[in-house]
């Protein structure tokens, strides 16, 4: 087996995450799609680290994880705030700026 198979898996997962962001309406599920995309890039980082024999890729994946954790905190807080104000977690309902 070639190590590029891992990259293929990462690409498929990334595409599925992107499709989730485009297709789903529930803000929380959309957020999970973003998480899936971040995870897919992490898999690519780890695989590249192995291909090149250099752990820097793993360090970058580690940074991605930390930033993802911070992003989840803020994002979910925003979702909770929107839910409190509008009693809905659907991304379609947040269209106040639309004329």
């Amino acid at each position: 087996m070639e190590l590029t198979n891992y990259l293929g898996l990462a690409a498929v997962l990334f595409a599925v995450g992107a499709a989730t962001v485009l297709l789903r309406r529930n803000a929380i599920v959309v957020f999970m799609g973003v998480e899936l995309m971040l995870n897919a890039t992490n898999l690519a980082f780890v695989t590249f680290a192995r291909i090149h024999g250099d752990v820097t890729g793993q360090v970058l994946a580690f940074f991605v994880m930390v930033v993802a954790a911070a992003e989840v905190v803020v994002g979910l807080a925003i979702i909770v705030m929107i839910f409190r104000a509008r009693r809905s977690a659907s991304v379609d309902d947040v269209n106040l700026l639309q004329s």
Partner: peptide, 29 residues
């Protein structure tokens, strides 16, 4: 349909890039 199309397109582009690129022989950690 637009979302499905874009998702499939993204998958096709990424997989195409990966299969077209030549990687150096894997070193291992």
């Amino acid at each position: 349909w637009l979302g499905v199309l874009l998702g499939l397109g993204l998958a096709a582009v990424l997989l195409g890039v990966i299969s077209a690129a030549t990687f150096p022989p894997a070193v291992g950690l």
